[in-house]
Design a protein around this nucleic acid. Structure first.
Lengths: 274, 274
DNA sequence: CCTGATATCTTTACGGCGTAAAGAGTTCGA
DNA sequence: TCGAACTCTTTACGCCGTAAAGATATCAGG
């Protein structure tokens, strides 16, 4: 797990928001010394490229430097340390998310779109899931993403105190579901063993080592035999299951939100779409 | 992030399930050489002690060995490597969870109890949250925990295909919510900066660096001003928020499950509590 | 009892990590 | 032109997981 928000707060913040206030940082530059051949942007891009290609575990100051034809230490001229680099990568990546959603078909459709886009985003940049969520990075794009989801959710008419928690539920769920897929891919890539083989080796060994499995865990066996998703195209087993969990699980959560809306709607003077 | 299920499947499995089949492993021992002063159990206990006290980041073969008065390499006689040690620690810790729940007050009450117990378990052993969930470890206690939750959920009367996903939703949510608290504590311990101070430093710097914040993110400001939980006892801000998110979020999810149950109940021949 | 096989455990070493410290090289203002 | 200011490299330190080799202890068989 990578921790954010550990460096100097001022320095991190000015780096994160620097694009919004370029005139301020530009004034600071005294043009003495060799012109910088790198830039914070270039370093952040290189970092994202490394993480996208080989995962967070492969992200080191040395690998990022190498990709830019520099040593690891060269990066420290631009960025205080690895933690801050990850913060910057995180906020930069979040810029890919849509800025708002069409609410004409109702909040539920918009929320479903948000979830699908966020899900795909996480699978495109799985390393993002390894950036800690406590002490959030507080970059502009993180705020924009949150603002965008809030616009959708305020359309439910729920009050702020409840919305706060609903945001949490949605984020935790999408992140968790995406994490399952991301980690399964990562494990496959890291070990070279595809999901199917791994699964088979495990369950084969399991029946040897625990022959009384069916008696000890009857409901598990029942779930396994009854609830399996039909085998599909090329998608590996674990990934297919996670995909279905995402779809059905999201529906369950949205049902729950609808129930809250309906309950709030019965309170006089507070209509659900007001 | 720590990955599980990377070592030799057979070796990991026999270590995990060894308690269930002690006669088999006992037979294997040839009493030549010095008597082992350590044991797998002692090593796993030491590992858990280290991780509980100082977090997963502090867990190294050297620190675990030191706690047992041995060198790091001594552990390799008992355990194939660090990954397998983490697998064993994980399954051992899970043994703390209750084995089943009283269903006489209905599945919803039982599910709420399960969630509360699991939540507390994660906060007692926060490092557990850093063990990857893809390619599950397949230890006996993990299966027992799952079996226990399944017993509660089968009481809803939902069919297996849906239950599979509901299990996923509940786990993702509880893990995600607990992770927020765990990471916030960990960050506080690692940096020595309590939540409150960190929050203040960040938001102070933020208003300097982004003076147009209120115009750019009006809904965020609205959420912040309207939805804040009342200040309470000694619990830090982030933790209090996470606690509320857990409570309210769980209710939303259970509402969603109830909606599924009600829908299934309207289908003739499939009663919700059948 | 002695010897040799087998086991535990230590020592040393290797290549990785983040980054501190020092210095080499480049570009400008005075 | 000189030195300050800046970029970037080199070297080094203490961590990590673990491979390899050796020291030490225990027992079976001669």
């Amino acid at each position: 797990m990578v921790f954010a928000g550990q460096g100097d707060a001022r320095r991190s913040l000015s780096l994160l928001w620097r694009a919004s206030a370029p005139e301020h940082t530009a004034r600071t530059r005294t043009p003495r010394g060799p012109k910088p051949a790198l830039s914070v942007d270039a370093i952040v891009d290189a970092g994202i490229a490394v993480a996208d290609a080989d995962g967070m575990a492969a992200l080191s100051m040395r690998t990022v430097g190498e990709r830019l034809g520099r040593t690891a230490m060269a990066l420290y001229t631009y960025v205080p340390g690895k933690n801050e680099l990850v913060d910057l990568m995180y906020d930069r990546a979040l810029a890919e998310l849509p800025a708002d959603y069409d609410l004409s078909a109702g909040w539920r459709a918009a929320a479903a779109s948000w979830a699908a886009d966020t899900w795909e985003f996480y699978l495109r940049h799985p390393w993002v899931l390894q950036v800690s969520q406590a002490r959030p990075v507080l970059g502009p794009n993180e705020y924009a993403a949150l603002e965008c989801l809030l616009r959708v959710l305020y359309a439910t008419g729920l009050e702020s105190a409840v919305l706060r928690r609903v945001v949490g539920v949605l984020f935790h769920f999408v992140r968790g579901a995406a994490q399952t897929v991301a980690e399964s891919r990562l494990a496959a890539a890291a070990t070279g063993v595809p999901d199917e083989d791994w699964w088979q080796a495990r369950s084969g060994g399991l029946s040897e080592v625990a022959p009384d499995f069916a008696e000890r865990f009857p409901l598990l066996v029942r779930l396994e035999t009854e609830g399996a998703a039909p085998p599909a195209d090329g998608t590996p087993y674990l990934e297919r299951e996670a995909q279905r969990t995402f779809e059905v699980g999201l529906a369950v959560i949205l049902d729950g939100i609808e129930a809250s809306v309906a309950r709030a709607g019965t309170v006089p003077g507070q209509g659900p779409l007001e």
